[in-house]
Design a protein around this nucleic acid. Structure first.
Lengths: 112, 112
DNA sequence: CTTGACACCTAGTGTTGCTAGGCCTAGTGT
DNA sequence: ACACTAGGCCTAGCAACACTAGGTGTCAAG
């Protein structure tokens, strides 16, 4: 999957998977890879900065977990995060519709 | 429409409208605005660099037109541009599917 | 004779996802 | 004992990109 296509949509994707239940960084990566059927196979260096940014923005909070002896930073949505997710999903629909109507619309046989 | 969402998709959008027939810069802007029903209302400073980049990449060529007394740079697709457009559209489908299955998919496998 | 639409252009900015590294612990070989 | 992998966290710097804010010039309308 091309890197650039993700720009501007990462927040929504991360918020989406965290919305289903508390997750730590690695868990977010796994969830995105699995739910996208392998399409989104992100590096840690991609995901961690996103989590930090979202937390700084007040959309996520974290709590440390040591249960397994391994330290994990479990993130979950704040109410603002839930609201933002809903908003971004509706923006996403509009975006897809707009793109589809540009590339999809009927036209004279594309030539050249 | 948020700026960041467009990243990585501009090329496809511009190629798409030019594929319908030769267009100059302003024409591209108009076409995108109209076809997207106002969602994509781009500034010249956004579109011109894209056209130049696409031409440098061999996906577009231009010819000057002076017919109306106004100089216009009419762009059209090269064969490579047509191929790239097709490829990007199929990538677009995959991208949309991947995103949808992340945000849409049903919640955690109730998992026993 | 100024205003605004049309038509072109570019240097610089801010955001963003990625690369490439680093640190630490737990388990698995050998 | 030692190496190696996987899990888990992190950040500095890079490159791409869309946008801002400016510029030049023509033409029609008031």
């Amino acid at each position: 999957m091309n890197a650039e296509s993700l720009k501007g949509h990462m927040d929504m994707l991360v918020l989406s998977v965290v919305a289903r239940g508390p997750l730590h960084g690695y868990g977010v990566i796994d969830a995105l890879r699995e739910r996208s059927d392998g399409s989104f196979d992100l590096a840690e260096g991609t995901v961690y900065p996103v989590l930090h940014r979202l937390e700084r923005a007040g959309l996520l909070t974290h709590a440390w977990s040591e249960s397994t002896g391994r330290r994990r930073k479990l993130y979950r949505l704040t109410p603002a995060g839930t609201a933002r997710l809903r908003e971004q999903q509706s923006r996403w629909r509009e975006f897809v519709d707009a793109v589809e109507s540009v590339i999809g619309g009927r036209a004279w046989p594309a030539m050249a």
